[in-house]
Design a protein around this nucleic acid. Structure first.
Lengths: 263, 263
DNA sequence: TAACCTAATTCCATTTAGTGGAAATGACCG
DNA sequence: CGGTCATTTCCACTAAATGGAATTAGGTTA
């Protein structure tokens, strides 16, 4: 007695595939292992369905089964898919070298991100450190769209309908402080319209500025520059903003000749 | 008129989910964009089925649709899943710092990998470079199991049945030179049994040695050390092998106290 | 060692939701 | 503007997925 088709999205899609992917998405940083029971709770799926789908995902190499603990963990195949994302991204291929050079030149962090639902996902985040050995590159990390300069710059770069849909999701996400938050987000978007970038300091001691990067036939991206362990100030934001705008100009130039290369 | 259930694996699983994941796997480094037609060819699925599944995958955020070119590309959500793999891996959490230190100390590349089908996937690959700025970390990259020391060490660490199954896949993969290749693989496995590690030099100017890492309630891993831009020799392999065995010992120690910490 | 308790998994009748071929639509080119 | 190719939608069909119930397996205590 399968349920009538009235699940999450509403739009038609392959239900089993949706559910399987939703199971994979239940795993995220901080939620490393899950048993079938927990997955059923988190996803709202029937236990027997979860049991069958996790079995399939294990057979496909997407989940590792930890028999002793009766639970699962994301498997290596998922990681290699993630690697394929980066290798296949023409934006990253073009901008990666520029970003590394700029990070070294300005001595600050440079990031490139795009959206996954209501989160921003770093395609590349180059963390500057005075000690070269400690410099690092992170990819795939998520930060909340509504709180970060990255996310707000992104919002300024996408079509109105999409933006409204996302702002609706922020409201559903955090019941508290919603009114003020949405106003703040919209203010940031206006600032991006005016100055080309916006600044935010959602982590103490960290100042970040970001700008949208809209290119034909690519998803909308956002580029950010940030400094940690400093005292955020308007003057500092303005200085970094200047660097960012100059850099973004060069990025757009580098990206403009992309569609010719079929890649 | 759906086909009777006699597809790929044979074992029962959710067919739609299998197909959807197989579509994602059709994208890999070098195959950045695919249209529905190409996907249908590569996967052997009917065109209409592919059309529907890609639509679902786009709705789920796993594929980006490039309308202008009528094709698809892996999307950011896949990358964040890949990031979750690394964050959720207790092996990487424990061994990552050790590997970085060892790479700096010995001035060579250190890698940690496990299997995805007949490929080895790097959970972490620390590329040593005399210029600290150029040191890099790669994750998710695949190398062929049968040609690499990493893969052969892995084969030496897994149960017999699994190993035989994989060796069968090598034969199907490369029709040529199969006989000699399989013998070579089996020789490497015996060397691992004897010395604890094996060496291989499948890329010119690169020497790599690897050892399996078998820990209760974790997938089997392999650790490697490698040098590039050198002349491979038995003596050099022996020297690196010595470093590797000492390092692996410390790794096993560090990993042994894992199951107590539930995570 | 056995009995208990909890939770995961298999079973099974039900019927939905996925299927693939055919038709229609849409893009691209001369 | 008409022709050609590829992609997507439509549709009748039924196989395959479904969820509740029954069963099995694990872990714990006496």
């Amino acid at each position: 007695m399968a349920l009538p088709r009235q699940y999450s999205g509403g739009a038609n899609g392959n239900r089993s595939l949706e559910r399987g992917i939703e199971i994979l998405r239940a795993f995220r940083p901080g939620i490393d292992t899950l048993g079938n029971g927990e997955i059923a709770e988190r996803t709202g799926l029937p236990r027997s369905t979860v049991s069958r789908l996790t079995k399939t995902l294990v057979a496909l190499g997407m989940l590792d089964e930890i028999k002793a603990e009766r639970n699962y963990r994301l498997a290596a195949a998922v990681l290699s898919l993630g690697h394929a994302v980066r290798m296949g991204s023409p934006a990253l291929r073009v901008l990666g070298p520029l970003m590394r050079a700029e990070s070294t030149r300005r001595k600050l962090n440079v990031g490139l991100a795009t959206a996954d639902r209501a989160m921003m996902v770093y395609l590349e985040s180059i963390r500057y450190n005075p000690r070269p050995t400690l410099r690092s590159i992170v990819a795939g990390q998520q930060v909340p769209m509504e709180l970060t300069s990255l996310g707000r710059a992104y919002l300024a770069g996408i079509p109105d309908a999409e933006r409204d849909r996302l702002i609706g999701q922020f409201q559903r996400r955090s019941a508290a402080a919603t009114r003020a938050l949405v106003a703040d987000v919209q203010k940031s978007i206006r600032v991006v319209r005016r100055d080309g970038y916006c600044a935010a300091s959602w982590q103490p001691g960290v100042l970040a500025v970001a700008t949208p990067m809209v290119v034909e036939s690519l998803p909308v991206y956002a580029i950010n520059m940030s400094l940690q362990d400093i005292e955020p100030s308007d003057d500092l934001a303005k200085e970094i903003g200047g660097y960012l705008m100059a850099f973004a100009e060069r990025c757009k130039e580098a990206l403009s000749g992309l569609q010719d290369f079929r890649g």
